[in-house]
Every structure is written in structure tokens, then in C-alpha cells.
């Protein structure tokens, strides 16, 4: 990729600056808003509106919209919560449902025209959700087993020769206290960032090939456009998949905290 010099011309490779757009309100305060924050708010508004309207209209005999809403809710309830947590599912279902649909909605903004960026590609949102999961699984674990019991359960897994605890305990501690929440947040953000960069690359290249490159290179626009469409569809898949993985792991972590045996 050769970046042509000069104002307004040439090919701009996507950069991480994509994720730091200019603020347009409350700049310099904690309430600063930029384009991605706005997208996040739009996604939230649409998500909440859809589900609240569906809930308001919910009837005993479901219509089309209600069927779709129930299928979506059932996916979280049955395929994530119940399959992972069994009898613990009901207790954490609202949390898991919130996380799943929040992540899904904000992932999907990455492929929605005009929004064009996943609002989970800013680390804040995944971090807040991961922190919620983190605090929650620590809280329910400690509440159930007491602080000592919880630490013993997690840091001193039974059935090992004592000498191995020298090795296992630090690893387990890192797992429980650092890696689980960190990987939750990073996996989601990194996926969304990568997806966005790929889409920008494809469509930016198409634009460049079509309007600025000469001769035979124009034909390459077809290739890059095709790739862009394909990656857009792929990003839809990734959006769903990452929402599923995030929620599934949250369910697994919560379940590990409250289960007697690991």
C-alpha cells in the first residue's frame, strides 16, 4: 500500500486513529461525546426501544415480532444460561440477557450503514461489562463459600500433590483475578477493532481504485469491493459470535463461582 502524498488524495490506510474521532460535545469533560459514543447511544436506544415495545405488546398468543423477540430471549435463556448453569440459570438470567443483547447491538453497529463502527471497539464498553461479570462472580462466590472458602476452592484445586500448589496457585490466581476479566474485554474489543480495520481497508481500497487509480488498477476495485461485502457478512457473524462467546464465558465464570465442585 503506497500512500500518495498530497491533500485529499491518495490512499489512506486505516489506522488506529479511526477509534479516536474528534469530540463534538463536552470536550475535555468526562461527558465528552464523539462519534463512537453517539453510535453507542443510538444502538442502546434502538435495542431498548425494540425490546420494550415487544414487551409492551407481548401477548399470550405471540405475533411475528413477539416470536422473534422470544426466540432471541430463549437463545440466551436456553442455549447459554440453562446449558451452562443448569439450576443456577434463573438467578443470572437478567444479567446474561443484558450482556448478550448489549454486546450484540453494539457489535452490529459495525455493519450498519452510516454508523459503520462497532461501539464495542472502544475498550470502555467491554471493560465495563467484563468488570460487572468480574465483580459479580467474585461476589457470589465469596457470598456462598466465604472469602476463605472461595479462595481455597479456586486457588487450591483439590486432588493435587501439595508441591504442585507452588505452580498451580499463582496461575489460578492470575486466572481468577486478572485473565478472566481481561480476556473477556480484550477478546471482544480486539475482534471489533480488527473487523472495522478490515472493512475500512476494503472499502477505502475500493474508493481509491475506482476514483484515483488509473487504468488496469480500476479493475481491482471489483475485487476489493467483493472482499468488502464478504467481510461485511463475516462481521455480522463475528458480531453474533462474540456476543455469544462473551455471554457464554460470563455464564461459565459465574457458574464456576457458585458450583460446589469444579
Amino acid at each position: 500500500m503506497i500512500a500518495a502524498s498530497g491533500e485529499g488524495g491518495g490512499f489512506h490506510p486505516p489506522s488506529i486513529a479511526e477509534f479516536f474521532p474528534a469530540a463534538f460535545a463536552f470536550e475535555g469533560t468526562p461527558f465528552e461525546m464523539n462519534r463512537i459514543i453517539l453510535v453507542r447511544l443510538v444502538a442502546t436506544a434502538v435495542l431498548v426501544a425494540l425490546f420494550v415495545v415487544a414487551a409492551r405488546r407481548a401477548q399470550l398468543v405471540p405475533g411475528r415480532g413477539q416470536n422473534v423477540a422470544e426466540m432471541a430471549l430463549d437463545f440466551v435463556r436456553v442455549n447459554i444460561a440453562q446449558e451452562t448453569m443448569g439450576h443456577n440459570a434463573k438467578r443470572f438470567l437478567p444479567m446474561l440477557t443484558t450482556i448478550f443483547f448489549a454486546v450484540l447491538a453494539m457489535n452490529l453497529t459495525g455493519v450498519v450503514p452510516l454508523l459503520n463502527i462497532a461501539s464495542t471497539s472502544l475498550i470502555g464498553m467491554p471493560l465495563v461489562l467484563a468488570a460487572w461479570v468480574y465483580v459479580m462472580y467474585l461476589a457470589v462466590g465469596i457470598k456462598k463459600f466465604g472469602l476463605g472458602g472461595y479462595l481455597k476452592n479456586n486457588l487450591l484445586p483439590p486432588g493435587l500433590p501439595p508441591v504442585l500448589y507452588v505452580l498451580v496457585t499463582p496461575i489460578e490466581a492470575l486466572q481468577v483475578f486478572v485473565f478472566r476479566p481481561a480476556t473477556l474485554a480484550l477478546r471482544l474489543t480486539a475482534n471489533m477493532i480488527a473487523g472495522h480495520l478490515i472493512l475500512v481497508l476494503c472499502f477505502g481500497a475500493t474508493h481509491f481504485f475506482l476514483f484515483e487509480a488509473g487504468g488496469a488498477l480500476k479493475a481491482a476495485a471489483a475485487l476489493s469491493l467483493t472482499a468488502g461485502v464478504a467481510f461485511t457478512l463475516f462481521e455480522v457473524l463475528v458480531a453474533g459470535l462474540q456476543a455469544y462467546i462473551f455471554t457464554l464465558l460470563a455464564a461459565v465464570y459465574l457458574n464456576m463461582a457458585v458450583e460446589e465442585e469444579h
Binding site: F31, V48, T97, T98, L122, G124
Partner: peptide
């Protein structure tokens, strides 16, 4: 601001699902 708005939307979505939906 990222953290703040994240918390705001999380609370909004959470409220909607916990209390209404």
C-alpha cells in the same frame, strides 16, 4: 468519557431488561 458512557448505556440496557422486558 468512554467508561462513563459505557456505564450509562449498561445501566440503561440493564434497567430495560431487568425491570421491563
Amino acid at each position: 468519557y468512554d467508561i462513563l458512557w459505557s456505564i450509562v448505556v449498561a445501566v440503561i440496557i440493564g434497567f430495560a431488561f431487568y425491570r421491563l422486558v
